[in-house]
Simulated assay, not measured.
Amino acid sequence: MEFQQMKEQFLALLQEQTLIYATISQPRQKSNELKRIKLKPIQLKGVYTIQIEYQYERILKHENVKLDAFAHHFDLLLEQFRQIHAQFTDQSIQIQLSKKNKVLWKSDKTQQQKQVNLSHNRKKQYLLDDATAYPFLIRLGVQTEDGKVKKQKYDKFKQINRFVEFIDDSLAHLPEDRQIRILDFGSGKSYLTFALYHYLKIEKGLDIRVTGLDLKKEVIEECNRIAQDLQYDDLQFLVGDINDYNEETSVDMVVTLHACDVATDMALARAVKWGAKVILSVPCCQHELNRQLNAPELDIMTQHGLIRERFAALATDSIRAQLLTLVGYETQILEFIDMENTPKNILIRAYFTGKKATQEERIKYDSFIALLNVNPFLQNELKNFM
């Protein structure tokens, strides 16, 4: 099949309005920040429309395009990508393009006719299904005895699922030939700790051992009772402070959720020293930089207490992410849950790669620290690794 013929045939199929979804992938240039495209049909104000989801390394963007205007967008996408997988109601199609645009077109007829869903607000598909009863969610009061998510707990259910998505994304970075060691600092009531254990141990069947650490004795005792009731034999909770926990020499994953101020930095430093392959951190109450901040160039912002507080918090997490990059981690700052549910919605995700930081990355960090005139706690903790 010729390249032009392929385009015409694919666009003709779209005109039939039988598309269910499509994925366009395999960037022609490895340096392309745009990693893949997803297409799905929706109906906006009664008009059949193709929603284009642009998946970058760190963010998603969406664009809605009317069917008669899609051909131009399709041309631009084919300039950047070499593979298309599309599911229609009656067939699935796989298209592979060579560097010189030679076309391999493979089509498989669908045995049972599929249905197109044009709803713009489709039901979210969770890794933990909201129609399934999970013993740990029932025990924690998120679900009723018959497995229905309680109305007042639905935000918590969404938060748990968002966290499980991060865990699922991290699987490729965890060891496969031995038991996986996981620590959760500041586990609190441990909704997410139980979710982590359930997903990795029960759903994925992995050999893991998880420890949750918190200062509240009563909370820890209750969490241990729940773990025993659920027969989660490789999950334990201990009373203790991050600084005082010296039971480990090597850890695979460190989770730190809402550890206040420099307690987050203590946990991040410990994770680096243990050589953790995965770090998931949701910071809280970032006061350290707010106290130190001395940047006359930013006075137009920082003269206002509210703005100063928010800026200092964002600067703190930016510094944390950059420091982790400087010591060999691939680091991202992601939205944990919607801002409407909580302002504490940033998650720092870091995967250890061992990649040496570039001189440019170091200069950017030093320049930023000099601008703010601060001396971050985490920088001092990691100085021997930089």
Rank of each mutant, 00 (worst) to 15 (best):
T331L: 12
L314I: 08
A295E: 08
V282K: 07
A271K: 13
L326F: 04
A321M: 06
A295V: 11
I337Y: 03
A271C: 14
R310T: 04
D338L: 02
Q332F: 11
E330H: 15
L323W: 10
D338N: 15
C285R: 00
N341D: 11
N341S: 11
A295S: 15
A312H: 07
A312Q: 04
G328S: 10
A321S: 12
Q286G: 08
I279C: 06
E288P: 13
H287K: 15
Y329N: 01
E288Q: 15
A312E: 14
G305Q: 02
V327T: 13
Q286H: 14
E297R: 05
E335Y: 00
F311L: 14
I337Q: 11
L314Q: 00
L289A: 03
T325M: 12
L323H: 03
I333F: 02
A315H: 01
L306A: 12
V282S: 12
H287Y: 09
R270S: 14
Q303R: 13
M339C: 04
I333N: 00
M301C: 13
Q286M: 13
V327P: 02
Y329C: 05
M301Y: 15
V272C: 04
L280F: 07
I279P: 06
R310I: 05
C285I: 00
V327L: 10
A315N: 02
R320M: 09
S281D: 11
L289K: 01
R308T: 01
T331I: 11
C284A: 01
S318H: 02
R270G: 06
N341R: 05
A313K: 01
D299S: 14
S318V: 03
P283C: 10
C284M: 06
Q303Y: 04
R310A: 02
Q286R: 09
Q286L: 13
M301H: 02
L298I: 04
F311E: 15
L293D: 11
Q303S: 11
L298W: 07
G275P: 07
T331H: 00
I279Y: 08
N290A: 10
A313I: 01
N341G: 00
N341T: 09
N294S: 15
C284W: 06
L314C: 12
E335D: 14
D317M: 00
D317V: 00
I319Y: 11
A295H: 05
Q332D: 12
I300E: 09
I307Y: 14
F311H: 06
C284R: 04
E288T: 00
T316E: 06
E297P: 10
E335T: 05
G275Y: 10
